[in-house]
Design a protein around this nucleic acid. Structure first.
Ligand code: FES
Ligand code: FES
Lengths: 158, 158
DNA sequence: ACTTACTTGACTAAAATAGTCGGGTATTGG
DNA sequence: CCAATACCCGACTATTTTAGTCAAGTAAGT
């Protein structure tokens, strides 16, 4: 099992994408600033997200990324899977051959745990997260901090 | 979050300890053979398990390790915590200061997931695992394989 | 004494993480 | 057309973690 900043960044970026406009695509530079994630790293992550068809891209000036479908049909587990290749906690990738081809003592435990985690993350959509009170207020704060920092008078709060 | 072979080995070894006798202490050499885990690595793990007071040690010939208390009051989460320092999935160790001292967008999600995993692993005791049908039969297989391999006529199946 | 088996600490090869860097290519506003 | 924007892609790297090894002990039983 791996759940590190890679997966966290991916979910954070997708959430930022969900929050900021359904009309115009969002550039990685914007996400990078708001979420304090390195631009180059974001590019790497979005390459995977695009391959998994969670986002679509628009090139050229004014371009950026868009969710490929409605935010209530994109689940956290899918985002993590896209960048992190599964939340499997078994050692054998579910095959049951840990101990020289044979199943090990604790296989069933890890198998069960994996299912538990997966169903938890698969029950939460991006839309669910956006609806949370704390997420709303943090997003608000991030936008305000950025306006102060940039002094850019683009008041277009979608 | 980290859940790697370190945690898995620890749980496996503790389970082996639970299965093999409540009367005489179990040596690491035995566990090493049955579970195919390097002896030196086991020593390292048991050092942590002993510090967390999950096992007690007996030195000298015939010595080994014993569970420090009844197997139905040792939970998987405790074993993993002992070697793996928590199954926390947040980036901030629960402090909420990911983003330059401020809380990040996804903190509450990871916090919730951590609690989910912890309560799952904290609801399963070593005794619960031993009672499982698959665990019983795998343990049986391991003992038989070892007898064939060693030709040691210690028929003392506790 | 001698052997068994725990105890401790330092060391290491290999892998994964968390990025960076440098060049592309498509699009569009002027 | 042209230059700026912003996605696209692959290679490269420092750091950290994992998964161990190795050596030199110490305590206890026979
Ligand atoms: S984890 Fe699946 S066989 Fe060991
Ligand atoms: S994970 Fe806790 S603040 Fe970001």
């Amino acid at each position: 099992m791996r759940l590190t900043t890679k997966g966290r960044y991916a979910v954070t970026a997708m959430l930022d994408l969900t929050i900021h406009c359904d009309d115009k695509p969002v550039s990685l530079a914007d996400i990078s600033q708001r979420q304090s994630i390195s631009l180059s790293y974001l590019e790497q992550l979005f390459s995977r997200l695009r391959q998994s068809e969670l986002v679509t891209s628009v090139r050229g000036p004014g371009g950026g990324y868009r969710l490929s479908r409605s935010s209530d049909s994109i689940y956290i587990a899918q985002v993590i899977d896209a960048v992190n290749e599964s939340v499997d906690t078994t050692n054998c990738k579910g095959k049951g051959d840990c101990q020289g081809g044979e199943i090990c003592l604790t296989h069933s435990l890890w198998d069960q745990l994996s299912q538990e985690i997966h169903s938890f993350l698969n029950a939460i959509s991006l839309a669910d997260l956006v609806a949370r009170r704390d997420v709303k207020s943090i997003a608000q704060r991030q936008v305000e901090q950025l306006l102060i920092l940039n002094e850019s008078p683009q008041a277009g709060a979608c």
